[in-house]
Design a binder for these strands. Structure first.
Length: 548
RNA sequence: GACGCCGUGGUGUAGCGGGAACACGCCGGUCUUUCAUGCCGGAGAACGCGGGUUCGAAUCCCGUCGGCGUCACCA
């Protein structure tokens, strides 16, 4: 492989957060560039003016950065091939289009959507595939002006050559498409903006893109792109189509899954009479018709994400993480997500699995990319996250935890680094950050916030005529007068108490734990009480004794 | 339907002509003051199916079936 002039790009459209599938594509392009000393370009494909979401590209850049993927050229990173927004490159497309029109490789067309639909229905009825009927003779510029004057939409279509084409794919090998499969597709829309097919080709050429690594769903687009390249007289980059990423059940992983899961959860709740349509209406503020459309007609657009979040909480379902940002919000380490993602469709060979970003760069190669689609196994991700967390130094954990806690408005975001480090270390073995809060969070809340779990109280405190309560009571004054309040001294105190009374560690530690945390789970008893401090410990012990 | 891609335990992968390996998950056990970790052990694929080439095939060839993808003035 020539390592000079390698230039690859990631080209998302700014319609929201970065999807994990997109992140995988970005990662592979990034790794490939780094491996070969090339340039990684980020280009925003915002030619569909109506669908663009304001500021979405900032979110995408932010998500990439969180993962540790930085571009060499792109929005905010100047390079010799900018601008990096397609919306700012209109002249380039206009010039290229004029060229194709002049050479006779493209022509005007004036069909309305209704006419096109009718044609498609006809084709369907006749059970023949729809192909746009190329007019003969081809309309002229004058015809186009006339049509425009009549108020008809004017588009430009590409005149697809009637020949077979073989594309060499770096992963798939040679892929041949028969002649006559493609019809004359639109390259410039009636609003004057290029379609995706045209814009990618023009930009890839202008930006000197040498390699295109993209998801396999684009494979069938490649002949279109190569035909345009030939008509334009520009070079064809090397293509590598990446295997798809599916949900664990084999369905396509898409943003719609969030709606899908919540919808099903709400339906189940309604069936079990835990919820009603009226609940859905009051929760979302949507009217009956809108609820009907969302719930029964699967019209996702009827409800916004914040409304879906409320419904999910009410129906007690967990919204699946789909976007990179979702995983960040769920308390994953970016290095773990990155490691997990890189292994969907690629492996360094052998038994090697855990990889840092630098190791990925060193080992990455196109010929080790798989052809088979992979599934996104959340259990494996969780296990991998646990691994990374266990191996991470405390400082890294503190940094990542603070990011997570801040984003989630957790009360633990306020803790100082030293305390946070101890808390995180005392919880080692956690899978994601919410586990840490579940285990130790209550120690940093007001005493009144402690919720006593009935089962735990019954089992640990009330059983045997309130033996646990009695233990607590007997501990009150020794704890109050304990000389030093450190994890070691507290542990020693508990041990000594056991030895003196012949009790087991659990007989002493568990009542304290339940009294102080409300549940039978918390960090080691010494650490638990240190986090709490002596005063709050005693306060909670007394508070708990009132349950008797 | 047309075209295209793919097919190793439940999942991700390794192996690419000569004992089917690793990780996750699952099951059982175990350490521990709780949970989670950790540790030990186990079940689970004759490599979609059929045929061929070969002394020998998951590995090469052909066929077949199945899964998936694409068929927009969305990208």
């Amino acid at each position: 492989m020539t390592t000079e002039n390698v230039r690859a790009r990631f080209a998302p459209s700014p319609t929201g957060y970065l999807h994990v599938g997109g992140a995988r594509s970005a990662l592979f392009n990034y790794l490939f560039c780094r491996r070969h000393g090339g340039k990684f370009v980020l280009r925003i494909e915002d030619t569909d003016i109506d669908r663009n979401i304001e500021g979405a590209e900032k979110k995408i850049v932010e998500d990439l950065r969180w993962l540790g993927i930085e571009c060499d050229e792109g929005p905010g990173v100047d390079g010799a091939y900018g601008p990096y927004f397609q919306s700012q490159r209109r002249e380039t497309y206009d010039v290229a289009c004029a060229k194709l029109l002049a050479s006779g490789d493209a022509y005007y067309a004036f069909d309305t959507n209704e006419e096109l639909d009718a044609l498609r229905r006809q084709a369907e009825a006749a059970k023949t595939g729809f192909r746009y009927p190329r007019p003969n003779p081809l309309p002229t510029a004058a015809d186009a002006d006339k049509a425009r004057a009549e108020g008809r939409p004017v588009v430009v279509r590409f005149k697809v050559p009637d020949e077979a084409i073989t594309i060499h794919d770096e992963i798939l090998g040679d892929v041949t498409f028969e002649a006559g499969q493609l019809d004359d597709f639109v390259i410039v829309k009636s609003n004057g903006w290029p379609t995706y097919h045209f814009a990618v080709v023009v930009d890839d050429a202008h930006m000197a893109i040498s390699h295109v690594l993209r998801a396999q769903e684009h494979l069938m687009n490649t002949p279109k792109h190569v035909f345009i390249q030939r008509a334009l007289g520009v070079a064809t980059p090397k293509y590598a189509h990446l295997p798809l990423v599916f949900n664990i059940d084999g369905t396509k992983m898409s943003k719609r899954d969030k709606h899908k899961v919540v919808r099903q959860g709400v339906k189940d709740a309604i069936k079990q009479k835990k919820m009603t349509d009226a609940d859905v209406m009051s929760l979302t503020g949507a009217d009956e018709a809108a609820v009907e459309r969302w719930l029964r007609k699967k019209a996702d657009a009827e409800l916004g994400m914040d409304q879906v979040v409320k419904l999910a909480a009410a129906a007690d379902v967990t919204i699946p993480e789909i976007d990179v940002h979702d995983f960040r919000m769920s308390g994953y380490l970016p290095e773990a997500l990155l490691n997990f993602i890189v292994l969907i469709g690629w492996s360094p060979g052998g038994d090697r699995e855990k990889l840092t970003r630098d190791e990925m760069i060193e080992l990455f190669s196109l010929d080790r990319i798989n052809k088979t689609a992979g599934r996104f196994d959340r259990e494996k991700l969780l296990a991998m996250n646990l691994d990374w967390c266990s191996a991470a130094p405390t400082e890294r954990l503190v940094e990542a935890f603070k990011d997570w806690a801040t984003l989630n408005d957790s009360h633990m975001a306020k803790l100082d680094d030293a305390t946070l480090g101890r808390v995180l270390d005392s919880c080692r073995g956690f899978r994601t950050f919410p586990d840490v809060v579940a285990k130790a969070g209550v120690l940093f809340e007001p005493d009144e916030a402690v919720v006593y779990d009935e089962k735990a109280v019954a089992k640990v405190l009330a059983k045997n005529d309130g033996a646990g309560f009695a233990t607590l009571e007997s501990l009150l004054s020794p704890l109050e007068s304990l000389e030093s309040w450190t994890a070691e001294s507290i542990e020693a105190f508990v041990k000594n108490t056991c030895e003196a009374t012949g009790a087991k560690m659990g007989d002493v530690a568990q009542p304290i734990r339940v009294a102080v945390a409300g549940r039978p789970v918390s960090p080691a008893i010494g650490e638990t009480l240190v986090f709490l401090g002596r005063e709050k410990t005693l306060n909670r012990l007394r508070q708990c004794l009132e349950l008797r």
